[in-house]
């Protein structure tokens, strides 16, 4: 691969199912070695976009380049890209070893090499000793690791992960997120993670593409998207937000709003009443009803007993000028 050529380039790709455009004129580049997240609600086209890269779907318009080569018409089994399926898709009639070695076997790799690579992969995902088991004999977390090992066994330049953590329970999910990043750092493989979970995307990805109704809404690093969402949709989808309607609508993140007891203070402050509150451990969420009738969500860090308000308390809300995010639509 030559310098300057992106690992994957989608050039105005459109995919229709009947009348509906699942993906509409999407162009984007994915660089070698990065973790790229495709984020959006279900039905936004993120899975279709990933399947277009893998080759399971052919675009109606536009081209798909992988490593600078036009792969639009290349079937999936001839693309240098591997995928980890949401359902894991482990072959139930094969052992863990056979599953992991399947891809290499298709390449016609010598048996000794396959054995060696399978052992290496089992070490990588910390499943030594389970090679002879059948998928049905594994826990959910173990299956996920086998799926990862199988997809990485051919050392692809790019790994596609379809909702990689959706089938795991909450506790396992966080741990696995960091393990996946660890594996990615070790191998230097580029990851494309499809997810509907903005937190997951933020934890894992170096760049996020937010999709809506088949179109790209915004691409950028997580912090940038959080701080400067390009649209109202992105603002509402990523993190918690208050929308302030006015001459021009603006948005404010709940943690940027400050609360004070109902005392006089200058600046752009507003009076309100604490409608309800939720103790969330590390922080507290307040619902503050303003005199104007608008209800704001305000998050303050939990710093012991200080500054805790109760339901019905009169408060004054202060929004720093730079906390306002202008919204176009």
């Amino acid at each position: 691969m030559t310098q300057g050529v992106p690992l994957v380039r989608l050039d105005r790709v459109t995919k229709r199912f009947g009348e509906v455009s699942a993906v509409h004129e999407v162009s984007l580049d994915i660089e070698a070695g990065e973790i790229f997240a495709l984020l959006g609600p279900s039905g936004c086209g993120k899975t279709t976009l990933m399947r277009l890269i893998a080759g399971f779907e052919q675009p109606d318009e536009g081209r798909v380049f992988i490593g600078g080569v036009d792969m639009t018409d290349v079937p999936p089994h001839k693309r240098p890209v591997n995928m980890m399926f949401q359902s894991y898709a482990l072959f139930p009639h094969m052992s863990v070893e056979k599953n992991i070695g399947f891809g290499l076997q298709q390449e016609g790799a010598p048996r000794a090499e396959i054995t060696e690579r399978v052992a290496e992969m089992l070490r990588l995902v910390q499943l030594e000793g389970l090679g002879k088991r059948r998928p049905a004999q594994l826990s959910g977390g173990q299956k996920q690791r086998v799926a990862l090992a199988r997809a990485l066994a051919k050392r692809p330049k790019l790994l596609l992960l379809d909702e990689p953590l959706a089938a795991l329970d909450r506790k396992l999910r966080e741990q696995t997120q960091f393990e996946l990043k660890e594996v990615q750092r070790k191998l230097g493989t580029a990851f494309v993670v499809v997810t509907h979970d903005q937190e997951e995307a933020s934890v894992m990805a170096s760049r996020i593409a937010v999709m809506r109704a088949g179109k790209l809404e915004q691409i950028g690093p997580p912090a940038e998207i959080y701080a400067r969402p390009a649209s109202r949709f992105v603002a509402e989808f990523i993190g918690d937000i208050n929308i302030l309607e006015g001459d021009a609508a603006t948005a404010v993140r709940p943690e940027r709003i400050r609360l004070e007891r109902g005392a006089d203070s200058p600046g752009n402050a507003l009076d309100g009443i604490v409608d309800d509150l939720a103790f969330r451990g590390s922080d507290i969420l307040y619902r503050v009803r303003l005199a104007t009738g608008t209800t704001l969500r305000v998050v303050t860090p939990n710093s012991g007993d200080r500054n805790t308000y109760r339901r019905g308390d009169k408060v004054r809300v202060e929004i720093p000028p730079d906390a306002h995010i202008p919204l176009e639509h």
């Binding site: 893998a54 079937p75 591997n82 995928m83 399947f102 298709q106 997809a151």
Partner: peptide
């Protein structure tokens, strides 16, 4: 699960290979 067949193709098995090693068994 259709993903089983797709997984085989993704790992480099052509349509005939996929049918013989995954679907048929």
């Amino acid at each position: 699960d259709r993903a089983l067949e797709e997984a085989a193709m993704d790992l480099g098995a052509g349509p005939a290979r996929t049918f013989l090693t995954i679907t048929l068994p």
